[in-house]
Computed example of a mutant assay.
Amino acid sequence: MINSKTKYEATLEEIWELFSFHKLGNVTGIAPLGNGEFNAAYKVTCDSGDSFALKIAPPEGATVLTYEKNMMESEVFWYKKMHENTDILCPKVYVADFSKSIIKSNCFVMQMMEGEPLWAVNFSESEYENVQRQKIEMLTKIHRITNDKFGYRQTGLHDTWYDALKSMAGNLVSDCKALGYETPDGERFIAYIDKHVEILKKVPCRMVNFDLWDSNVLYKDGKICWIDPERGFWGDPVADFITLGPGQKTPLSSKGKDLETYNETADEKIVLTSETEIRYALAVCLLALIEEVEKYVRYEPDEPNYIRNTVDAREMYDMAFDIL
Rank of each mutant, 00 (worst) to 15 (best):
F123Q: 08
E277T: 05
K166M: 13
I270M: 12
L286M: 13
F77M: 12
K249R: 14
K104M: 08
G115W: 04
L139F: 13
E14N: 03
N85T: 05
P32H: 08
T6K: 02
V121S: 07
D194Y: 04
I290P: 01
S167D: 15
A313Q: 03
V121L: 01
N263D: 09
C285F: 00
F321S: 06
E260G: 00
K104L: 12
S253P: 02
L324N: 02
E260P: 00
Q248W: 08
L252I: 11
T310D: 10
I145C: 04
I227F: 10
A288M: 05
C90S: 15
N85K: 11
R153W: 04
R279A: 08
S74R: 06
H143L: 10
V271D: 06
V238L: 01
L118Q: 02
L54K: 01
V44F: 06
T250A: 13
I193V: 15
G49Q: 04
L324P: 00
F150G: 00
D221S: 15
M71H: 01
T66I: 04
A10S: 14
A120K: 15
E116C: 02
V271P: 02
A53Q: 01
I2V: 15
L282H: 07
S215V: 10
L18T: 12
C225F: 13
V311Y: 07
V109R: 09
L54F: 10
V173W: 05
D211G: 05
L18N: 06
Y67F: 15
I145N: 03
Y296F: 15
L18G: 05
T6R: 08
W78S: 02
A10N: 10
I227H: 04
I2W: 06
G29P: 01
Y94W: 14
V203N: 02
A313Y: 02
V284G: 05
A266Y: 02
P58H: 00
K7P: 13
L24C: 05
G61Q: 03
I323Y: 05
W16M: 08
L286H: 11
T265I: 02
P251Q: 08
W161F: 14
C176W: 06
G170H: 09
N3T: 03
